[in-house]
Design a protein around this nucleic acid. Structure first.
Lengths: 337, 337
DNA sequence: GCTTGACCCGTTAACGTTACCAGAAGATAA
DNA sequence: TTATCTTCTGGTAACGTTAACGGGTCAAGC
């Protein structure tokens, strides 16, 4: 039984007022007498009327969408960032349009092109490396753009993030300070995960700066690398470079895999080898031993981004492009003794 | 420099054709000569034109949105389901509008009311317990509705899920078969997580059916319970009911927390106590020992749901309400020896 | 030649809402 | 009393696109 959908016109007729008054009854800031508003709301509820925000957006030429792209849905760090953004933006009546790129900047381009058709009020992307067309699309969109989880040298718009490269420094410093010299790095194969690539670069630079050998690099598989791949990489590391005395993993997940592999083989952590990760995932704090890591404060990134957007959309800071650095925090754990 | 946004009219003028022809040039299935289409596409690209799907949706009275609500973004199981749905629906040109309810059916109601204003082509919700208003909203929306991750007794529309209660049966059976008698259950406090509540109920029923004592129930904190809360609950269990010889945790995350706590205290798993979880999270397969669990096949749920929606939206199976049971699979691990 | 049909393109109106302007009714001030 | 302001409500047009239909052109068939 498909019946004609109910519109404002129906509500107006039933309530004995004009459509315009019905429209006003559904906006919080417009002037309708309290009685009329209540009456209209009640009539609407009885009729089962639901406002059509598609039409509203078209007419008013503004939308309550903020489009967001992240590399993967299945990642606690990105999920935290989005969740925090959603909390702040939701209170302001905005909605998040979320998409995942599978760590592929061409998929990101496709997704962003699709999102822009929705005429979002703002666009948030993860990372600072994009296709040329993506950059062009975002620049021409005429809306606030925020790049997160990175500190790109040539930003498109606003930035809320940190240097993935420099984030390796405290870890290398800590390992050296605790007497380790032969430090390895476990990361993903491809360059799809630019944050992972940046961390590897940062590792190399930090090692060189300290006069240490930066060539113990293990490729663990397709990004994002899993716990299992971390374990396999650790197995290879122990076989190929048995004198290694510490390893930094591109994420806590692979670090935990590496830790498990050591447990399985009876390799003592941190006695025989120290292990560090990145991301401050819950597993890092509960593993046995706990895993030394860096906390990039994902929720803080999300909150900052949302606040920034609300500011610029209110007309403050118009035209400026803002840049917030959220410094990752060193979190010592038992895995580096 | 805010300039007037570019519309089809601008493209039409620049390409020397009518707006209608431009519109057709952007739809794959409509009849425009290849030359004209290429020309228009090129002109549009040069002008930086981006189609406004808000207007398109309004005019055509259909949308390419599928709205989806899940309890939490930060959950690998739900993320997998959404990701699989997104893969299938994306290929059909549809987009997912995702929201999280924080395990609160009133928040779910708010979210669904908001989503329905977008006139989605379909609506997917997680779980089978909702507020009365939610049920009414979904019933009256005139679009396909799917409830997932559950097998509700009184479904609103289609169903793709499984019985969380019955899913406890294989675990209890396995534990009993391996000689355990004094089996405990660790779950969340509140009833917000209806799937968790169902599992506890299912545990009690399975225990009773086997003549075992179903009263060893530990409340571990606010849902969703974390690894840490799982660990704390295990500590309480060991203190309060030291003769317990097995424990089923509401999820693998809490199970891993429990396992860690045992490791910390030198309690042998599975020698002193067996541990089982639920969800087949990656951690279950890599923990040491691996954790016995149930795999609810989250991606399969997502794929099935998406396929079902594409079917009904193509006009097949109109009017029927379909019900797919995706049976969880028992995954033995080392933690139950 | 004329008819028929396929293919391509244009004109008009409409989707459901809100911006904008205006006007009526009542309150307040002179 | 009249003038002025405030509060509430209504009429009209427009947002950018596509559905529906109509018309023109050209090739094939008679």
């Amino acid at each position: 039984m498909t019946q004609r959908p109910i519109t404002m016109k129906d509500v107006a007729r039933a309530a004995g007022v004009s459509v315009m008054t019905v429209s006003r009854a559904f906006k919080t800031d417009s002037s309708v007498s309290p009685d009329t508003r209540d009456h209209i709301r009640k009539v609407a509820e009885d009729l089962g009327y639901v406002l059509d925000s598609t039409a509203a957006n078209l007419r008013s030429q503004r939308s309550d969408f903020v489009a967001v792209t992240i590399p993967s849905l299945n990642n606690a760090n990105f999920a935290d960032t989005v969740s925090a953004m959603s909390d702040v933006l939701g209170k302001a009546g905005m909605q998040i349009l979320l998409g995942h790129t599978n760590y592929d900047i061409h998929e990101e381009e496709r997704l962003i092109a699709q999102f822009l058709q929705r005429r979002p009020a703002a666009m948030v992307v993860t990372g600072g490396r994009h296709t040329d067309r993506t950059r062009k699309l975002l620049s021409n969109a005429g809306i606030p753009v925020v790049e997160t989880w990175d500190l790109p040298p040539d930003p498109i718009g606003h930035v809320v993030g940190f240097s993935n490269a420099r984030a390796m420094d405290p870890l290398v410093a800590h390992l050296q300070a605790t007497g380790r010299q032969r430090i390895a790095f476990i990361g993903g194969d491809a360059d799809g995960d630019t944050r992972g690539t940046d961390r590897r670069m940062g590792f190399i630079r930090a090692m060189e700066a300290r006069g240490l050998d930066p060539t113990r690099l293990i490729r663990a598989g397709q990004v994002p690398i899993s716990m299992k791949e971390g374990a396999a990489a650790m197995a290879r590391l122990l076989a190929d470079l048995p004198d290694t005395d510490a390893v930094i993993c591109v994420s806590d997940l692979s670090a935990f895999g590496a830790l498990s592999e050591c447990a399985r083989r009876g390799v003592d952590v941190p006695g025989d080898i120290a292990i560090a990760g990145f991301g401050a995932y819950e597993i890092a704090g509960i593993a046995h031993p706990t895993i030394t890591t860096m906390n990039p404060h994902p929720r803080r990134i999300g909150t900052r981004t949302a606040d920034l957007l609300l500011m610029t959309m209110n007309g403050d800071a118009q035209g400026e492009t803002l840049r917030f650095e959220i410094a990752p925090e060193f979190v010592p754990g038992g895995s580096t003794g």
